[in-house]
Simulated assay, not measured.
Amino acid sequence: MSLINTPIKPFTATAFRNGTFVDVTEADIQGKWAIFFFYPADFTFVCPTELGDLAEQYDELQRLGVEVFSVSTDTHFTHKAWHGSSETIGKIQYAMIGDPTLQISRNFEILREDEGLADRGTFLVDPDGIIQFTEVTAEGIGRNATELVRKVKAAQYVRNHPGEVCPAAWEEGEETLAPSLDLVGKI
């Protein structure tokens, strides 16, 4: 079953952020855009490249009013150790949620039950707590944070402009579509 257009489920977790441990719940994102960026494990190979790429886009996401939460089934203590030992991970300013109870990974239906690890999954949650898009890739396929920012802009545009939709490869400022009977068969 798809999670698109469904509300996120309640959760409680501890995250590492900016040198401290912070408690995080679903209530923390009420009224805000949020990205939940799941990855298999700390101290691995593709994961730090993705998290570093996302860190490079964090200022732009903040400008768009989007909070970012990376999530793995590691503990917040492991996140702190990784943050302190890796130059790439040390640049991260967003919250790194520890999910050792597997609750959040199960809530987002991204958990590999037989391994206790999350798949690579990205979820955009709107200010109403509704999941607007998901992306899931296989273990060895890293994601692109620039494309993630583009999708966020498209989701925000559609939310702010009822009756319009963003076509493929739409970039901010480009033309959108207004679906209607007159448009059928003309694209």
Rank of each mutant, 00 (worst) to 15 (best):
I35C: 05
F37K: 04
Y39D: 09
D42S: 13
D42V: 07
F43E: 03
F43K: 08
T44L: 04
T44I: 02
F45S: 09
L51K: 04
L54D: 15
L54R: 10
A55D: 14
Q57G: 08
D59F: 13
D59V: 14
V66K: 11
E67G: 03
V68M: 04
V68Y: 11
V71W: 12
V71S: 11
H76T: 03
H76E: 14
F77K: 03
H79R: 02
A81R: 12
W82L: 04
H83G: 12
G84N: 14
G84V: 00
S85D: 13
S86P: 05
T88L: 02
I89C: 02
G90R: 05
K91A: 08
I97Y: 00
I97P: 02
G98L: 03
D99H: 02
P100H: 03
L102W: 12
Q103I: 08
Q103H: 09
Q103V: 11
I104S: 02
R106Q: 02
R106M: 00
R106L: 00
R106V: 01
N107G: 06
N107E: 05
F108D: 07
E109F: 07
E109P: 01
L111C: 01
E113I: 00
E113K: 01
D114L: 06
D114K: 09
E115A: 10
G116V: 10
L117W: 00
T122Q: 13
F123Q: 05
L124M: 10
L124S: 08
L124P: 04
L124Y: 07
D126V: 12
P127A: 11
I131G: 00
T134C: 04
A138L: 06
E139W: 06
G140S: 13
G142N: 06
R143D: 12
N144L: 14
A145V: 08
T146R: 11
V149Q: 10
V149R: 06
V149S: 09
R150I: 02
K151P: 00
K151V: 10
A155G: 09
Q156P: 05
Q156N: 08
Q156R: 10
V158D: 00
V158R: 08
N160E: 15
H161Y: 03
H161D: 05
P162D: 07
G163V: 04
C166L: 12
C166H: 12
A168H: 09
W170K: 12
E172T: 02
G173L: 14
E174P: 00
E175A: 15
T176R: 14
T176N: 06
L177R: 01
L177E: 00
